[in-house]
Design a protein around this nucleic acid. Structure first.
Length: 603
RNA sequence: GCCGACGUAGCUCAAUCGGCAGAGCACCCGCCUUGUAAGCGGGCGGUUACGAGUUCGAUUCUCGUCGUCGGCUCCA
């Protein structure tokens, strides 16, 4: 049932265009720097890149030059010619290209592809030539450079990238480009990037007063402003409702624990790099928690459990701290303090499938609520080489657990893709990739199976036969962290949240200050009905007040002037610009309460 | 952490070749009493991220630190 979503792209014309554009770019770069060492240049999601080892750093002006030269080259209508040859012939051609020689060695041994990953079948060695440029390459390419339209590609930026993606290797200069079948597609793509920029949660988060970062507080440590506080309250309320229905119990655990706990859990041997260093008091080391699980394990183990008690589902919105490397921080999406929608489900092996799929069902409810239409479940497996280093050293259990997850997903009819060497240290996991309203990809929810740590904590329950059995543990966070979830929601909705999530439901706008008191009375009535409201009694004109409320993306505006006041009514302006004049407050309250209570998508 | 770029008022941005640091918005004070996306006038606001150096003189040039951004690595 595992889907090969990549397969199609690799056979497409677009893939060939991008791959070929990468070669053309490499030609232009090598012309500019004859001493350049070139490495690999594959197509990626929206374009391509090529990594070079160059005598100096590239500047934006260089990119312009390279792009200009590329346009000349593609207009030359050069044929791409493939040649299959022996390793020695290839070595002769690339004798001055050390990275290519390394690749040839890998290909010859039949061991590794260009990323250093093991290959299943021994590949043939081939080169592609066009114009003056020859590259070691398995293809496929377009017939001729004329298929690369000179107005349908663009070089985007330069970035550092490690050779073979390994931070121990030399850092190369990577040029990213985007390429399409025609100019219109390129234009559309660039437009989409512009739109994404407008929705950027870092920009909107500040404008809508949801969160800030402060240099003095520290990188990756967001301060939630009152508006963000409201959104978090709403998300917690949502999770609590859903989890109570699904039989979860809520617990609370401290942010600090003794070193001993994390030695036992395996965090210190396998995860220390991501933990804040310990603080020592009276000779005892304490760590801030990067995860809640060890403490939940302690709660599970705090009394004797029978098979009749299982499954036990312990949930907590615990605040965790992880020392993410400075360059990894990214707005709310990657932070150092985070509050996870965390829970641990302890179950017997025969309950695993049902519990696991129960979590997947929860995902689907959230997808529906947030209008997430596109998603991919990504099954992350262990990598053999990481056993005992990245992963607990028990290959038999890895394989067994991975098979259990596959079976559960297959039986449940949930499509997924597999990703090798991406598991958590204690077991395989399902990460959920979702796509926002404008097609930007996010990785939010996670669902992990832990076959290792319960044993380390000596957790057990008494089974039907009266024997002690170790429970499985499912770690899950369908709503991710508050940080990442809010970041996603900002971009997904472009700040136009459904009413229930909006920090302020209603802004009451008096037309002149004669209506200030009336407006404030309305606010009080709304608050009593559980509707978040404020009155704009500033000295500005009504038009400015409306504009401000629109810019803060408040869903409902109640305009009150002389007429409304005398009639005891309000005039409703909805965020979409529609109006409903002279209605009773009760009518508005009924509408708003209904939308909020149902968490309706529409206003 | 690594490669590169960037850092000017709360926000968005100017400042010629190294020569007195400016605008709009926001905020405060007035005037206007207003009908569905900015009424008008005035005022406050800066150790140009921080610290050194070069120079008669540094927002501008050099170095270091901190932070942000584009990537790599990593990840909820």
């Amino acid at each position: 049932m595992a889907q090969q979503v990549q397969e199609k792209y690799e056979e497409s014309q677009l893939y060939k265009i991008r791959h070929s554009a990468a070669h053309v770019m490499a030609q232009a770069v090598v012309e500019m720097f004859p001493e350049a060492k070139y490495t690999i240049g594959p197509p990626v999601a929206d374009g391509f890149y090529y990594d070079f080892d160059l005598p100096r750093n590239l500047t934006p002006e260089d990119l312009e030059q390279i792009e200009k030269r590329m346009r000349q080259i593609v207009q030359g209508k050069h044929e791409f010619v493939k040649k299959v040859l022996s390793a020695d012939e290839a070595r002769q051609i690339f004798k001055d290209q050390p990275y290519k020689l390394e690749l040839i060695d890998g290909l010859e041994q039949g061991g590794f592809d260009e990323y250093g990953n093991p290959l299943k079948v021994k590949p043939e060695i081939s080169i592609y030539q066009h114009d003056s440029f020859t590259d070691l390459c398995r293809g496929p390419h377009v017939q001729s450079t004329k298929e690369i339209k000179q107005d349908a590609f663009k070089l985007m930026n330069v970035a550092g990238a490690y050779w073979r993606g390994d931070e121990k290797n030399k850092q190369l200069q990577r040029i990213y480009g985007t390429a399409w079948e025609n100019a219109q597609q390129l234009k559309d793509h660039l437009h989409l990037l512009e739109e994404a920029k407008k929705r950027d949660h870092r920009k909107l988060g500040r404008e809508l007063e949801i969160f800030i970062f402060d240099e003095e507080v520290g990188p990756g440590l967001p301060l939630w402003l009152p508006n963000g506080g409201v959104m978090i309250e709403e998300l917690e309320k949502l999770a609590k409702e859903m989890e109570e229905k699904a039989g979860y119990l809520r617990v609370r655990t401290p942010n600090l624990t003794k070193e001993d706990l994390f030695i036992r859990s395996g965090h210190l041997p396998y995860y220390a790099e991501s933990m804040y260093p310990p603080m020592e008091l009276e000779g005892v080391k304490y760590y801030v928690k990067p995860m809640n699980c060890p403490m939940h394990h302690k709660i599970f183990g705090s009394k004797q459990r029978s098979y009749r008690d299982l499954p036990i589902r312990l949930g907590e919105y615990g605040t965790c701290y992880r020392y993410e490397k400075s360059g990894e921080l990214f707005g709310l999406m990657r932070v150092r303090s985070m509050q996870m929608n965390d829970a641990h489900i302890y179950c017997a092996e025969e309950q695993f499938e049902q519990e696991f799929m129960g979590v997947v069902a929860l995902y689907h409810k959230y997808f529906e609520l947030f209008g997430i239409e596109k998603y991919v479940m990504r099954l992350s497996l262990h990598g053999k080489a990481g056993l005992g280093k990245k992963y607990v050293d028990n290959e038999r259990l890895w394989i067994k657990t991975e098979e259990m997850v596959r079976r559960a997903m297959d039986n449940g009819g949930v499509p997924y893709v597999e990703a090798e060497d991406e598991a958590a240290f204690y077991g395989p996991k399902i990460d959920v990739q979702i796509w926002s309203a404008i097609g930007k990809e996010f990785s939010l929810a996670t669902n992990q199976v832990d076959f290792a740590v319960p044993e380390r904590f000596d957790l057990h329950f008494t089974n039907r036969e009266g024997n002690e059995e170790i429970p499985l543990c499912i770690h899950r966070a369908p709503l991710s962290t508050h940080e990442r979830m809010v970041g996603f929601l900002i971009e997904h909705y472009a700040g136009n949240f459904p009413a229930w999530l909006s920090p302020e439901h209603t802004r009451v706008i008096p037309i002149t200050d004669n209506q200030n008191e009336y407006a404030q009375g309305i606010v009080q009535q709304l608050r009593e009905q559980g509707i978040r409201a404020s009155a704009d009694v500033s000295a500005q004109r009504m038009n400015a007040k409306i504009r401000n409320a629109q810019m803060m993306k408040v869903p409902y505006m109640l305009v009150v002037g002389e007429n409304e006041m005398n009639a005891g009514q309000v005039s409703l302006r909805v965020r979409d610009g529609s109006q409903q004049n002279n209605i009773s407050l009760a009518e508005f309250v009924a509408r708003a309460k209904d939308k909020i209570a149902r968490r309706a998508k529409e206003l």
